[in-house]
Design a protein around this nucleic acid. Structure first.
Length: 690
DNA sequence: GCGATCAGAT
DNA sequence: CACATCTGATCGC
C-alpha cells in the first residue's frame, strides 16, 4: 500500500496519487492508475469544491485510466477536468498559481508501468531536474533499458530522484516468477480442468481490483472461453479486453465475486449463484492468485500450488520483485531514491539501506544530495545557469525513435507537446531550440516517425481520419474521442507461445470425455475481427489442441484423490453437494508435501534449496544463470530465461525483432561513440535499431 | 446521513 | 502470507 504523501521534493506544486490534506493546494494532479489506495481524497467534497473555484486545475493520467475513472459515477464530476496524455508522449504542462499568477512549466512523460490497465510512471522534466515517480509497477529485468524516453543521447537520463514502488523491496521477495510463467501455469491448469467436460468450470478468486485483465484475456484467447465477470462497462471502449469478458454466467471460466463467495464455493456454488448447467452439477475448482516468491537460487517455476481438494493458489504479482526493483533502480541510477511503500515488517531505514547503494551518491565521491523534504518551494534559480550546470543532458538533438502507441504519426521536426487546454496555445519545439524561458533543453524535438509494427487491428479501422494527425499537435483527448480509445496491447503484451513445458502434474483429462472441448465462444456479433488482434499469431485452435496436445503429454499425470474418487462418472451428486472443505485441509501441510505429496501441482521441492540462498550478495541472474547445477534445469526455462535471466541486450524488445548482426552493432556502437548521427531505417521500433 | 478512520476479513 | 478492497464500528460534523 502506497504511503506516498502526494508531493515530490523537486516539484511540490504538483500532487500525484494523493488528493487530500496538503495536496488540496496543488496546481496540477496526476493519477498513475485506478487503484483506490492511489485515489485518496479524489472524490472528497473538499477537492470537489477546489475544482469548482480553480478552473485551471486538471487531473492528468493515461487514456485508459481516464476511461476507468470516469466510468465510476463517484468520479464523474471530474469529467471536464481530466486530461488524458498519451503514453510515451512528452507533454508540457503549465503549473499556474492562480492567486499570484506565478507559473512554472514541466514536461511530463507517461511510461507504461505494467501494473494494471492504464498504469503508468510519470517522468517529470523541468527546472528542478528530472524526477521519476513510478507509481506501482511490475517491470521485468532489463525493461528500463528499453524505455526510450528514459534515455537521452544514448544513455539513461540524468535523474535526480526516483519515487519508487517498493512493495516487494525485501529480500524475502527475491524473485517472483515472471508474468509469462504465472500465466502459463494458470493457463494449463485451467485448460486441464475445463477440457474434461462442459460441466467443469473454474473460479478465479480475484480481488476487486484492476490488474487481472491480462490473465482473463490470455485465458480467453488461448482457450476460446470468455471469462464471466460482474461488470464490464468500464471496458466498453477497450475491445481487446471487452471481447474476452462476458456477463453471461454460462461459461466455464468465472471471475465473478460475491461477499460470501468462499462460503458458496464450499457448496459448489459460484459467486454468481449457479451450481449446475443443464441440470447437471458443475465441477468447480478455485484458483486464487497470490504472490509467491522464490529465493535467489531457486530456478524451479512452481507457480501453482494445490491447497485443497478443489483449491489452488497461483502465483500472480502486480509488483516487481526485489531483484526487479534493484535492477530497475540500478539502471536508472538516480541521485536519490525514495520508497513509496514500506513493506510490512520493514522500516523506512531498512528500505533505504537497500536503495541507497543503487543510487549515484553512493557510487562516487560526490557529496550527497539534499535530504528528503528539504525543498518545499520551487527553486527560483537563474535558469540559464541551471542549464549550464547540466552536464549530462546532451543539448544536441539525438535521433531517438519515438514509440507511437497508436496510429499517430509525428512529424520528425515538429514534435508536439500538449499544452493546457482551452486557454493555452499549443506549444511546439523545434530541434535544438528549447524554450528561451529556461526550460531544460530536453531534446524532444527530433523523434523519427515510427509506425507501430503490428498494430493492424481494429483500432486502425475505427480511428477516424481526424486521428491521423500528421503535422499538427497532439490533439487533446476530449476533442477526439477515437484517439482516446485505450489500446490494450500498449500495456501488456504477451511474449511467449504457450506450448509444451510444465505440463506435468496437471489433473488428467484422459478418463473423462475430455475430448469434448469447451464450446467455442460465439462470434455471432459479426465483429470477430476485434478478438485477439494482438495475439493472433499465437492463437491456436482449442478444439484441436485442447484434447490432443494436452492428453498426449499427460499420460504420466498424477491423479489427485479427488479425481480418483469423484471424477465425472460416479457419485456426481454426492460430490457436488458435499462441502468442499478444501482450504482447511491443512493447506500448509499440503504445500510442504507432507500430507498429499502427489497433490502439489508443480511441487515446491525447491523450497529447501532457496533456504541456502540466504539474502544475497551478488547478481541474482548471474548466480542462477551460470552457477546453477544442470539438474535444476527443469520446467519452463525458456520463459524463465527471458524475463528473469537475460542481460539487457539479450532481451528482444518485440517478438519479431531481429537481432542485429555483430558487424552492424559494431558499426552502430562506433557511431554512438563518436557522436555521429545515425540514420535509421524505417522499420520497427526497437532500441536495437539505434 | 456522510465522511474519516481503524480493525478485521477475504 | 504479503498484490487491494470491502465491511462494520466508532466518532465527529
Amino acid at each position: 500500500m502506497s504511503s506516498f504523501q502526494g508531493q515530490m521534493a523537486e516539484y511540490p506544486t504538483i500532487s500525484i496519487d494523493r488528493f487530500d490534506r496538503e495536496n488540496l493546494k496543488a496546481r496540477a494532479y496526476f493519477l498513475s492508475h485506478c487503484h483506490k489506495d492511489h485515489m485518496n481524497g479524489l472524490r472528497a467534497p473538499s477537492l470537489k469544491r477546489r475544482l469548482e473555484c480553480s478552473l485551471k486545475v486538471f487531473l492528468y493520467c493515461s487514456p485508459v485510466t481516464k476511461e476507468l475513472l470516469l466510468t465510476s459515477p463517484k468520479y464523474r464530476f471530474w469529467e471536464k477536468r481530466v486530461i488524458a496524455i498519451e503514453i510515451e508522449t512528452p507533454t508540457q504542462i503549465a503549473l499556474v498559481d492562480e492567486a499570484s499568477g506565478e507559473k512554472e512549466e514541466v514536461i511530463v512523460t507517461l511510461l507504461p508501468a505494467g501494473h494494471c490497465p492504464g498504469s503508468v510512471m510519470f517522468l517529470f522534466e523541468g527546472s528542478n531536474g528530472t524526477v521519476l515517480y513510478t507509481g506501482d509497477f511490475r517491470l521485468a529485468k532489463g525493461e528500463a533499458s528499453r524505455m526510450e524516453l528514459l534515455h537521452s543521447g544514448g544513455r539513461v537520463k540524468d535523474i535526480q530522484s526516483v519515487y519508487l514502488d517498493t512493495t516487494f523491496c525485501d529480500p524475502r521477495f527475491y524473485q517472483i516468477p515472471s508474468r509469462e510463467e504465472c500465466l502459463k501455469g494458470i493457463l494449463e491448469l485451467v485448460r486441464s480442468w475445463i477440457t474434461r467436460s462442459p460441466h467443469h468450470v473454474v473460479w478465479l478468486n480475484c480481488k476487486a481490483a484492476y490488474g487481472y485483465e491480462y490473465l482473463f484475456t490470455n485465458l480467453s484467447e488461448e482457450l476460446g472461453v470468455q471469462v464471466h465477470v460482474d461488470k464490464m462497462d468500464m471496458f466498453r471502449n477497450m475491445p481487446d479486453i471487452l471481447h474476452h469478458l462476458t456477463t453471461d454466467r454460462d461459461t466455464q471460466i468465472h471471475a465473478c465475486r460475491h461477499p460470501k463467495a468462499e462460503e458458496y464455493f464450499q457448496w459448489n456454488k459460484l459467486p454468481c449463484g449457479i451450481t449446475s448447467k443443464s441440470k447437471t452439477m458443475l465441477h468447480t475448482i478455485s484458483i486464487k492468485p497470490s504472490t509467491m516468491w522464490f529465493g535467489e537460487r531457486t530456478r524451479k517455476t512452481n507457480v501453482i500450488v494445490r491447497t485443497g481438494e478443489s483449491s489452488y493458489r497461483a502465483c500472480f504479482s502486480f509488483h516487481s520483485s526485489y531483484s526487479e526493483i534493484k535492477d530497475f533502480l540500478s539502471y536508472i541510477c538516480p541521485v536519490n531514491a525514495y520508497p513509496n511503500v514500506i513493506p510490512i515488517g520493514l522500516t523506512v531505514d531498512k528500505v533505504m539501506d537497500v536503495l541507497k547503494p543503487l543510487c549515484r551518491s553512493s557510487q562516487s565521491t560526490e557529496p550527497r544530495y539534499k535530504p528528503l523534504g528539504k525543498l518545499k518551494r520551487t527553486r527560483t534559480i537563474h535558469l540559464d545557469s541551471e542549464e549550464d550546470d547540466d552536464l549530462f543532458d546532451d543539448p544536441l538533438p539525438i535521433p531517438l525513435r519515438h514509440k507511437v502507441p497508436y496510429q499517430l504519426t509525428l512529424h520528425p521536426e515538429v514534435f508536439s507537446m500538449k499544452a493546457l487546454p482551452q486557454d493555452q496555445p499549443e506549444l511546439r519545439q523545434s530541434p535544438g531550440c528549447g524554450k528561451a524561458d529556461g526550460m531544460r533543453n530536453v531534446s524532444l524535438a527530433n523523434f523519427i516517425d515510427c509506425e507501430e509494427s503490428n498494430s493492424d487491428s481494429e483500432e486502425e479501422l475505427e480511428t477516424p481520419p481526424s486521428a491521423q494527425r500528421g503535422l499538427g499537435p497532439v490533439t487533446l483527448p476530449q476533442q477526439n474521442a477515437a484517439a482516446d480509445m485505450p489500446q490494450w496491447e500498449v500495456f501488456f503484451t504477451r511474449k511467449e507461445d504457450f506450448t509444451e513445458e510444465c505440463l506435468e502434474n496437471l489433473p488428467s483429462s484422459i478418463e473423462t470425455g475430455g475430448s469434448q472441448s469447451p464450446k467455442p465462444v460465439s462470434d455471432s456479433d459479426g465483429e470477430s475481427t476485434h478478438i485477439s488482434s494482438q495475439n493472433s499469431s499465437q492463437s491456436t485452435h482449442i478444439t484441436d489442441q485442447g484434447s490432443q496436445g494436452w492428453d498426449s503429454q499427460c499420460d504420466t499425470v498424477l491423479l489427485s484423490s479427488q479425481e480418483k474418487s469423484g471424477g465425472d462418472s460416479t457419485s456426481l451428486d454426492k460430490d457436488a453437494y458435499r462441502p468442499k472443505n478444501k482450504e482447511d485441509i491443512s493447506a500448509s501441510q499440503m504445500e510442504q508435501n507432507e500430507f498429499y505429496p502427489q497433490e502439489t501441482y508443480c511441487d515446491l521441492k525447491s523450497r529447501d534449496e532457496e533456504v541456502n540462498g540466504a539474502p544475497h550478495t551478488g547478481e541474482p541472474d548471474t548466480v542462477s544463470d551460470r552457477k546453477s547445477p544442470p539438474e535444476e534445469e527443469t520446467l519452463p526455462t525458456s520463459i524463465h530465461a527471458d524475463s528473469q535471466s537475460s542481460s539487457d541486450f539479450e532481451i528482444p524488445s518485440t517478438p519479431e525483432a531481429e537481432l542485429p548482426k555483430p558487424e552492424r552493432l559494431q558499426y552502430l556502437y562506433g557511431k554512438l561513440a563518436t557522436g555521429e548521427s545515425i540514420v535509421v531505417e524505417k522499420r520497427k521500433c526497437s532500441l536495437l535499431d539505434i
